[in-house]
Simulated assay, not measured.
Amino acid sequence: MSYSMTYSLTDKEARRGMALIWRPMFAGPWRVLLLANTCIRSMGYMVTGFLVAILALRWFGIPVEDAGHVYYLLALGIAISFLLLLRVQSARIRRCYLCSRSMSGQTLFLDQAGITLSNGRSRNFTAWHDIDALSTGKAIMVAVSGVYGIILPDRLLAKAGEVPVVRRQVETWHAAGHA
Protein backbone atom coordinates (compact mmCIF):
# COMPACT_ATOMS: atom_id res chain seq x y z
CA MET A 1 0.00 0.00 0.00
CA SER A 2 1.24 3.50 -0.81
CA TYR A 3 -0.17 6.99 -1.13
CA SER A 4 0.77 9.72 -3.57
CA MET A 5 -0.45 13.30 -3.61
CA THR A 6 0.51 16.79 -4.74
CA TYR A 7 2.28 18.49 -1.85
CA SER A 8 1.48 22.13 -1.20
CA LEU A 9 0.93 23.87 2.11
CA THR A 10 -1.03 26.92 3.11
CA ASP A 11 0.57 29.55 5.33
CA LYS A 12 -1.63 28.44 8.24
CA GLU A 13 -0.59 24.79 7.80
CA ALA A 14 3.08 25.76 7.66
CA ARG A 15 2.72 27.88 10.83
CA ARG A 16 0.96 25.13 12.76
CA GLY A 17 3.31 22.45 11.44
CA MET A 18 6.45 24.41 12.30
CA ALA A 19 5.13 24.87 15.84
CA LEU A 20 4.50 21.11 16.15
CA ILE A 21 8.08 20.28 15.14
CA TRP A 22 9.27 21.55 18.54
CA ARG A 23 6.79 19.51 20.60
CA PRO A 24 8.82 16.24 20.74
CA MET A 25 12.04 18.13 21.53
CA PHE A 26 10.52 19.90 24.52
CA ALA A 27 8.42 17.13 26.01
CA GLY A 28 8.23 16.29 29.71
CA PRO A 29 10.62 18.25 31.92
CA TRP A 30 12.09 20.04 28.89
CA ARG A 31 8.78 21.89 28.57
CA VAL A 32 9.69 23.74 31.79
CA LEU A 33 12.89 24.93 30.09
CA LEU A 34 10.88 26.20 27.13
CA LEU A 35 8.46 28.01 29.46
CA ALA A 36 11.34 29.56 31.45
CA ASN A 37 12.98 30.70 28.21
CA THR A 38 9.73 32.29 27.07
CA CYS A 39 9.29 34.11 30.40
CA ILE A 40 12.88 35.39 30.41
CA ARG A 41 12.56 36.63 26.83
CA SER A 42 9.30 38.39 27.62
CA MET A 43 10.85 40.10 30.63
CA GLY A 44 13.79 41.10 28.44
CA TYR A 45 11.43 42.76 25.95
CA MET A 46 9.74 44.68 28.77
CA VAL A 47 13.06 45.79 30.31
CA THR A 48 14.31 46.87 26.90
CA GLY A 49 11.05 48.77 26.39
CA PHE A 50 11.52 50.59 29.69
CA LEU A 51 15.15 51.44 28.89
CA VAL A 52 14.32 52.73 25.42
CA ALA A 53 11.42 54.74 26.89
CA ILE A 54 13.78 56.34 29.44
CA LEU A 55 16.28 57.20 26.69
CA ALA A 56 13.52 58.63 24.47
CA LEU A 57 12.13 60.79 27.28
CA ARG A 58 15.62 62.06 28.13
CA TRP A 59 16.24 62.77 24.45
CA PHE A 60 13.22 65.11 24.47
CA GLY A 61 14.24 66.57 27.83
CA ILE A 62 11.25 65.18 29.71
CA PRO A 63 11.97 63.89 33.24
CA VAL A 64 10.68 60.33 33.73
CA GLU A 65 8.98 61.43 36.96
CA ASP A 66 6.90 63.96 35.03
CA ALA A 67 6.02 61.59 32.18
CA GLY A 68 3.66 59.39 34.24
CA HIS A 69 1.44 57.27 32.02
CA VAL A 70 3.31 58.26 28.87
CA TYR A 71 6.40 56.46 30.16
CA TYR A 72 4.55 53.21 30.79
CA LEU A 73 2.59 53.36 27.53
CA LEU A 74 5.77 54.07 25.59
CA ALA A 75 7.58 51.15 27.26
CA LEU A 76 4.66 48.80 26.62
CA GLY A 77 4.41 49.96 23.00
CA ILE A 78 8.10 49.27 22.44
CA ALA A 79 7.82 45.78 23.98
CA ILE A 80 4.79 44.99 21.83
CA SER A 81 6.64 46.21 18.73
CA PHE A 82 9.42 43.71 19.50
CA LEU A 83 6.84 40.91 19.63
CA LEU A 84 5.32 42.08 16.35
CA LEU A 85 8.77 42.07 14.75
CA LEU A 86 9.19 38.44 15.83
CA ARG A 87 5.88 37.57 14.17
CA VAL A 88 6.98 39.33 10.99
CA GLN A 89 10.28 37.44 11.05
CA SER A 90 8.48 34.13 11.54
CA ALA A 91 6.10 34.93 8.69
CA ARG A 92 9.07 35.72 6.46
CA ILE A 93 10.71 32.37 7.27
CA ARG A 94 7.44 30.57 6.39
CA ARG A 95 7.06 32.55 3.17
CA CYS A 96 10.63 31.71 2.09
CA TYR A 97 9.94 28.03 2.81
CA LEU A 98 6.60 27.98 0.99
CA CYS A 99 7.89 29.91 -2.04
CA SER A 100 11.23 28.14 -2.41
CA ARG A 101 12.06 26.52 -5.73
CA SER A 102 12.17 23.08 -4.13
CA MET A 103 8.51 23.39 -3.00
CA SER A 104 7.32 24.05 -6.55
CA GLY A 105 5.62 21.01 -8.03
CA GLN A 106 6.25 18.73 -5.05
CA THR A 107 4.71 15.27 -4.91
CA LEU A 108 4.46 13.45 -1.58
CA PHE A 109 4.78 9.67 -1.48
CA LEU A 110 3.98 7.70 1.66
CA ASP A 111 4.72 3.97 1.79
CA GLN A 112 6.04 1.30 4.14
CA ALA A 113 9.65 2.41 3.51
CA GLY A 114 9.11 6.04 4.48
CA ILE A 115 8.23 9.46 3.14
CA THR A 116 9.47 10.78 -0.19
CA LEU A 117 9.15 14.33 -1.47
CA SER A 118 10.00 14.86 -5.13
CA ASN A 119 9.58 17.69 -7.60
CA GLY A 120 11.12 15.99 -10.63
CA ARG A 121 14.46 17.75 -10.08
CA SER A 122 15.16 16.86 -6.45
CA ARG A 123 14.18 13.93 -4.29
CA ASN A 124 14.12 13.69 -0.48
CA PHE A 125 13.54 10.32 1.17
CA THR A 126 13.20 9.82 4.93
CA ALA A 127 12.84 6.27 6.26
CA TRP A 128 10.33 5.64 9.06
CA HIS A 129 13.23 4.54 11.26
CA ASP A 130 14.75 8.01 10.95
CA ILE A 131 11.55 9.77 11.98
CA ASP A 132 11.79 10.46 15.72
CA ALA A 133 8.13 11.19 16.34
CA LEU A 134 4.76 11.87 14.78
CA SER A 135 3.58 15.12 16.32
CA THR A 136 -0.15 15.68 15.89
CA GLY A 137 -2.41 18.67 16.25
CA LYS A 138 -5.83 19.72 15.05
CA ALA A 139 -6.13 18.57 11.43
CA ILE A 140 -2.35 18.17 11.04
CA MET A 141 0.43 15.64 11.59
CA VAL A 142 4.18 16.28 11.41
CA ALA A 143 6.78 13.59 10.89
CA VAL A 144 9.66 14.95 13.00
CA SER A 145 13.30 14.02 12.43
CA GLY A 146 15.59 16.13 14.64
CA VAL A 147 14.76 19.76 13.89
CA TYR A 148 13.31 18.86 10.50
CA GLY A 149 9.68 18.02 9.95
CA ILE A 150 7.47 16.91 7.10
CA ILE A 151 4.11 18.59 7.54
CA LEU A 152 1.15 16.37 6.71
CA PRO A 153 -2.10 18.34 6.96
CA ASP A 154 -5.38 16.42 6.88
CA ARG A 155 -6.34 18.40 3.78
CA LEU A 156 -3.55 16.64 1.87
CA LEU A 157 -4.11 13.25 3.48
CA ALA A 158 -7.75 13.47 2.33
CA LYS A 159 -6.48 13.37 -1.26
CA ALA A 160 -5.10 9.88 -0.57
CA GLY A 161 -8.20 8.48 1.15
CA GLU A 162 -10.13 8.72 4.38
CA VAL A 163 -8.02 10.79 6.77
CA PRO A 164 -8.35 8.50 9.85
CA VAL A 165 -7.38 5.47 7.74
CA VAL A 166 -4.35 7.23 6.19
CA ARG A 167 -3.26 8.55 9.62
CA ARG A 168 -3.51 5.06 11.16
CA GLN A 169 -1.47 3.62 8.29
CA VAL A 170 1.22 6.29 8.74
CA GLU A 171 1.30 5.57 12.50
CA THR A 172 1.56 1.82 11.79
CA TRP A 173 4.45 2.32 9.35
CA HIS A 174 6.20 4.60 11.84
CA ALA A 175 5.77 2.08 14.68
CA ALA A 176 7.03 -0.75 12.46
CA GLY A 177 10.09 1.33 11.58
CA HIS A 178 10.96 1.48 15.27
CA ALA A 179 10.23 -2.16 16.12
Rank of each mutant, 00 (worst) to 15 (best):
Ser2Gln: 15
Ser2Pro: 01
Met5Phe: 09
Thr6Ala: 15
Tyr7Val: 02
Ser8Leu: 15
Thr10Met: 09
Lys12Ala: 14
Lys12Gln: 07
Lys12Thr: 06
Gly17Ser: 04
Met18His: 06
Ala19Cys: 05
Leu20Phe: 03
Pro24Arg: 12
Ala27Phe: 07
Gly28Ala: 15
Gly28Leu: 11
Pro29Glu: 14
Trp30Gly: 02
Trp30Met: 14
Arg31Asn: 04
Leu33Cys: 01
Leu34Ser: 08
Leu35Met: 14
Ala36Asp: 09
Asn37Ala: 13
Cys39Asn: 12
Arg41Thr: 05
Met46Tyr: 13
Phe50Asn: 10
Val52Met: 10
Ala53Arg: 05
Ala53Lys: 07
Leu55Val: 11
Leu57Arg: 00
Phe60Asn: 05
Pro63Tyr: 13
Val64Arg: 14
Asp66His: 12
Val70Glu: 04
Leu74Ser: 01
Leu83Val: 09
Leu83Ala: 12
Leu84Ala: 14
Leu86Gln: 11
Cys96Trp: 14
Tyr97Cys: 02
Tyr97Asn: 05
Tyr97His: 04
Arg101Phe: 09
Arg101Leu: 08
Ser102Gln: 12
Ser102Lys: 15
Ser102Ala: 13
Leu108Met: 01
Leu110Asn: 00
Gln112Ile: 09
Gln112Gly: 05
Ile115His: 00
Leu117Lys: 06
Gly120Ala: 10
Gly120Phe: 13
Ser122His: 12
Arg123Asn: 11
Arg123Glu: 08
Asn124Ser: 11
Asp130Ser: 06
Asp132His: 06
Leu134Glu: 01
Thr136Asn: 12
Ala139Trp: 08
Ile140Pro: 00
Ala143Trp: 00
Ser145Phe: 06
Ile150Cys: 00
Ile150Thr: 05
Ile151Asn: 01
Pro153Glu: 04
Arg155Leu: 07
Leu157Arg: 01
Lys159Met: 15
Lys159Phe: 12
Ala160Val: 03
Gly161Asn: 05
Gly161His: 11
Gly161Ala: 13
Glu162Phe: 15
Glu162Ile: 09
Glu162Ser: 08
Val163Gly: 00
Val165Thr: 10
Val165Arg: 12
Val166Arg: 08
Arg167Asn: 03
Arg167Glu: 04
Arg167Gln: 12
Gln169Lys: 05
Gln169Ser: 11
Gln169Ile: 10
Gly177Tyr: 09
Ala179Thr: 08
